[in-house]
Structures are given as structure tokens and as C-alpha cells.
Design a protein around this nucleic acid. Structure first.
Lengths: 258, 258
DNA sequence: TATACAAAATGACGCAGCGTCACTTTCAAG
DNA sequence: CTTGAAAGTGACGCTGCGTCATTTTGTATA
């Protein structure tokens, strides 16, 4: 009925070192020993060990587990609930980490991975006080526009729309040198216009307003837009203008249809 | 333009010790010093510090951050993605921890918080191989019944139905001594029947089958039911029988209506 | 300019939960 | 009795600092 340490380790799936450590800190002291001093474990010990491992998986610290199993009048409800609260907080933290990571990944995709530029931008973005952003937004936009705001892609690589925008932006940067009228550029611009139409075709004034805000670096930063270099923005503006001028049925800005 | 260490600490919101540590490990070495050896930080240093802190919030380790900022040709995309994967794994782990904690909390609510009984049960529950449970279930139940299975409460304290079942069970245990025919017991039984009717009134045979499985400790464990002591189950069985017998319009089991 | 007091520096220990040597002793089989 | 595996003890290492303890430096005042 007495089991040597290595069998216990194999059976339960932990290391011998761990068992010795648990003995050492008094978490699972070995009652039985051979004359030579080798540890021997009873069935009781195994049960207790399972409890310990279970509680460890719940995220409790060994010290707390020791107390829990020692004191027979331990307040389980209280410590379980506080542990639950802790676990929930951690989840929240990880969720925000995931969000930031996705933004960063998107940023790298746009700017190219060579330098730390994207990082710098994103740091400014994330360092921004969210409350301030919201206040600034509310001051600039009316209720309907705040509602439309939700339709904007949010630089989140999980959203396929965002992903395409990111890809398009990155492509523009690649072929900028060819000039606004180049077929490659104009093809990208056309796709961008299509996408804008898809999502905001019914609200052309909102689109214009957004684009004006985009052109102001200060506003863009305040609003938490992903920062695009000024020269890229200027290039896009020209390219859009060229596109409008050369499209027979001018429709994009809804200014006037022939 | 050179800022003493404490101002940096206050401005950025970290400790002086941290700054010295970052210097020590070469993460943010101080270029400028006074003749006496006091550290002085430049604007450059501040920027780098912000990057460091941002990456630390993303969950990177200081050692990795050092590499990232040193090597100018760092593969950002790759490390960001692997970090994202890690964060997602952690979230998964925390989710399962939360689930187990909720189960444990419910268990304590049923069994009373004095002893370690609930813990023992839950350990068996969680130690079970999920795959085995599913196989066992599939062998016992047909397709429609597997579908009905979803309606069962799952000992999750977040679900109000589960919460009431837990509360009712705990109440029964409290007043068991008064006998199956006691008004208190019968009142609880009535409520239980109502709830069963609510959720499974249309499938009385399924209810009977479940109850039979419940009465077998082995099956219950295999199915991952929350373990209820045999005496409590027997008591409930008798109490249900008494309730059926004394209800004029026998309806519960749908065996036959007058 | 001497003095006092704040701020900075260095050095060391501690924390959680073991992994990983290094070295010695015990156990069980032949 | 030998031998090799298994077990024992002890110590250091890891992460990212917090927290003393002790010594120097910087700066403002008397």
C-alpha cells in the first residue's frame, strides 16, 4: 500500500522534484519513510495530492492551498469567489492585450515590418486616454454620425473588412512612386471607392467629413485613427480627385449626377 | 533637457527602482550622467521607455523587448503573432479555470462549506476525461435525447436556473430530518416538479430516464453529473412518490390523467 | 562655507515554483 | 558483495522588480 516516489510521479503526472518540494514546504509531508529515509506515499496522500493539483489548476498559490487543506473550518465560499474575481480580471487584461496586439499586427502590415515606425504610432494610439477620445468625438459629430461611426473598421485584424483596408493601404504605399494616375493606383482607388460605397454609400456627407478630419493630423490623433503619413494622405486625395474626374458617372461624392 | 531619475519616474508612472533595473540589464542604459554618477535621461530615452512599457503591457518579457529594440531588422510580424497565439491560449486556460471555479462555488453552496466533500467530488468530476463522458452519453441516449441534454442546467452559477436548483438541493438537505412528508420538504418538491415541467414537461420519458441514471452512482459519475449522496437521492425519490400520491391531479409523470 | 537634508547610488535578500546540476546514500537484483 | 538504478540533500537559477541598509552626491539655507 506504500508507493515509492517515482511511481507516484508517473501515476499522477508530475515530477519527483515537485513531490519533494511539496514535502519540503509542508504542503504534502510524507508520513511514512523507509529506514533509509526514502519517501513512501499512502492512498491518503494520493487523494490529497489530487486536491492540491486541482486547486493549483484553479490558480491558487501553494501557500493558500496549504491553508485551505489544513484548516478544517476554511471559508471556501469566500476564497473561491475572490479567486473567480481574479480570474475574470485577468481575462479582461488578456482581452485588451489581444486587441492591442491585433492593432499592432495590422500596423506592421501597413507600414512594413522593417522599422519601429508602426510601434511608435501605436504607442501614441494606445497611450491616448479613451475618455478624451470619446469626448472629442462627441464634440465633433452629431448623434447620427456617432451612430455611423460604428461602421468604421477598427484596425482589427480579425475583421475581414479591416484586413482589406490594411492590404489596400499597404499596396498604395508600394506603388505611390508611379504617380496618382498610374493604372495600378487607380485600380486600388476604384476598389476603395467601391468599399466605401458599400459601407457608407447612403451617407456621402459623413464620408466627406471623415476625410476632412483624416487630413488634419491633430484631429486624427485625437480621434484615435490609425496614423497615416501626411504624404500618403495627400497622395490619396489627389488620386481620388483624379478618379472622380475620369469617371464618367460621377457618383462617389454624390455631389451631382448628370 | 536632461531629466533626473525621479522626475522620469513620476512623469511616466513607474518606480525609480525599475529605471535602475532597466539600466542594469541593459534594456535602457543611461548615456548621460552627472560627475557624481547620477543618471540623467534624454528625450530619446523617454521615447524608448514608452516603447518598452508598451511592449511590456503586451506581455513580452524584458529580455525579448531588449532584442526587439536592439536589432534593427527584427521580425516583428512573427513575434507579434506568436505573442497573440500565447495570449489566446492563456485566455482559453482562464476560461476553463472560471468554469471550474463556478462549478466549485455551486458545489460548496449545495454541500455546505464546512468540509472538503464538495472539493473531492469536483476533483473527480474535473479529472474525468471529457471524451469518455461523451462516448458514454452517446451509448446511453438516442439523438433526440442528446438534443434534450442541452437543456439541463450545468452547475454553472452564472445560470439562474442552475442557481435555483442548487438552492433547492441545499434546502432539501437542510430539512431532510423532518421526513419525506413534511410540509417544508413537500413545498420544495412541488417547486422542483414545477421547474421540471417548465423545462421538460413535454418529454416525461426523458425525465424518467435521467432520474434512473441519477440513481446509479456509477452512471452519474460517468455522465459527469454533479454527485449527490445516495441517501439524498433515495430521500428525493420517496418524497417525489409521496408528492405524486398526494396530488389529486396526477400529472408529473404523464402516466395517465383522470 | 559649513551644514543639513533630500535624493541618488550600490548591494543584497526575497518572492513562487519548481528545473537542473552535483554529490552522497540507499535499495533491490544477481 | 557488487553494481546500477533510484532516492536523498543542497545549492543556484529564473522574472521583475520591492524593500531594506549603507554610502555618496546635490542643493538650499544659515
Amino acid at each position: 500500500m506504500l508507493i515509492p516516489i517515482q511511481q507516484v510521479a508517473k501515476q499522477i503526472g508530475i515530477s519527483v522534484r515537485t513531490l519533494r518540494y511539496y514535502d519540503q514546504i509542508g504542503l504534502l509531508p510524507t508520513m511514512a519513510k523507509t529506514e533509509g529515509g526514502h519517501r513512501l506515499y499512502t492512498e491518503e496522500d494520493l487523494k490529497k495530492l489530487q486536491q492540491i493539483l486541482f486547486l493549483k489548476e484553479m490558480g491558487f498559490r501553494l501557500d493558500d492551498i496549504k491553508q485551505m487543506l489544513q484548516k478544517q473550518d476554511w471559508n471556501w465560499a469566500s476564497s473561491l469567489k475572490s479567486q473567480l474575481a481574479y480570474v475574470q480580471k485577468e481575462q479582461e487584461r488578456l482581452r485588451s492585450m489581444e486587441l492591442s496586439l491585433r492593432e499592432l499586427i495590422s500596423g506592421v502590415a501597413v507600414d512594413g515590418a522593417e522599422n519601429v515606425v508602426a510601434l511608435q504610432k501605436l504607442i501614441r494610439l494606445s497611450g491616448q486616454d479613451k475618455a478624451k477620445q470619446i469626448a472629442f468625438k462627441s464634440a465633433l459629430l452629431n448623434d447620427k454620425e456617432l451612430d455611423l461611426w460604428q461602421r468604421l473598421p477598427h484596425m482589427n485584424a480579425a475583421d475581414p473588412h479591416s484586413m482589406e483596408w490594411i492590404a489596400l493601404l499597404a499596396q498604395v504605399k508600394q506603388v505611390m512612386v508611379e504617380g496618382t494616375s498610374s493604372p495600378k493606383v487607380q485600380s486600388i482607388i476604384r476598389r476603395m471607392c467601391e468599399k466605401m460605397d458599400e459601407q457608407f454609400g447612403d451617407e456621402p456627407e459623413f464620408l466627406d467629413k471623415l476625410w476632412e478630419l483624416r487630413k488634419s493630423p491633430a484631429s486624427s490623433e485625437q480621434l484615435g485613427f490609425y496614423p497615416i503619413e501626411q504624404n500618403v494622405i495627400a497622395f490619396l486625395d489627389e488620386a481620388f480627385a483624379f478618379y472622380d474626374a475620369n469617371t464618367t458617372a460621377v457618383q462617389r461624392k454624390g455631389e451631382a449626377a448628370p
